[in-house]
Simulated scan of single mutants.
Amino acid sequence: MSKIVALVYLSLDGVMENPAWTGPYFDEEHGAYQRERLFASDALLLGRETYEGFVKAWPGMTDEDGFADRMNSMPKHVVSTTLETTEWNATLAKGGDDLAQEVAALKERYERDVLVYGSGALIRSLVAEGLVDELKLWIHPVVVGEGKRLFPEGTGMSQWTPAGTRTFSSGALILDYRPSGA
């Protein structure tokens, strides 16, 4: 059975929207970590907005280490109440009241991680339903000042247990959490 692992780029002030501000921190060390996470996963679970951004960018990409091939070939599951069709090896998951059942089915279907990139609204829904097994917050040493936050004001409380950290030479770090009691 797989785990749902959410990997989120965040600024020091908690912004996750339009993470172009991560660019100056991305180097070989960051690339190796991204490759490690992607190759440890059997599928992607994406929200509509992240999916639409990825499907515009990834299908034409290539690289020497196989990251683009892996990203393009692996199964993707897109949670959306508005999309009618998908492409890029993606299957539509309607979400809503059936989200917990659909995620449970994904966890049974795959052996290794199901990786969630970005997808703030989806992650908030998954957290609220207790469906995230691991939350990896990739904190970048920058204050963005404005933009969507992973957990905006009014988000219900949930408790998490630290499960590890990783520090990069760029000053970015990953805080790894699991739901308390898990």
Rank of each mutant, 00 (worst) to 15 (best):
F168I: 06
G95T: 04
Y33R: 15
L44W: 07
D27F: 06
Y25G: 03
Q159L: 13
F39D: 01
D98I: 00
S180V: 01
K56D: 12
L115C: 00
N89C: 05
N89R: 12
M74K: 14
S11P: 01
E153D: 12
D65A: 12
L92D: 08
Y117I: 08
E17R: 02
Y51W: 11
T62K: 14
A104R: 15
A163W: 02
E49D: 09
S80M: 06
G118W: 01
D113K: 04
S125T: 04
D27L: 09
V142C: 04
D69K: 14
R124Q: 13
I139E: 03
T165N: 14
V143H: 03
E146Q: 12
E29C: 10
G53Y: 00
T85P: 00
E36L: 10
M61W: 12
V142H: 03
S169Y: 02
G147N: 06
D176A: 15
M157P: 01
G23D: 12
R112N: 14
M16K: 03
I4D: 05
L115H: 05
Y25L: 02
T86P: 04
V142F: 04
L10T: 14
A163Q: 03
G14I: 00
S2V: 06
P24E: 08
I123T: 11
A68K: 04
S80W: 10
L12D: 03
S80H: 10
R35W: 11
T82D: 01
A6L: 09
T91N: 07
I174T: 09
E64Q: 13
G181A: 09
L83W: 05
M74V: 13
L135C: 02
F26K: 00
I174W: 10
L44K: 11
V8W: 02
P24A: 13
V55Q: 13
T85M: 04
R109S: 09
L45M: 07
A43C: 08
P75T: 10
E17V: 01
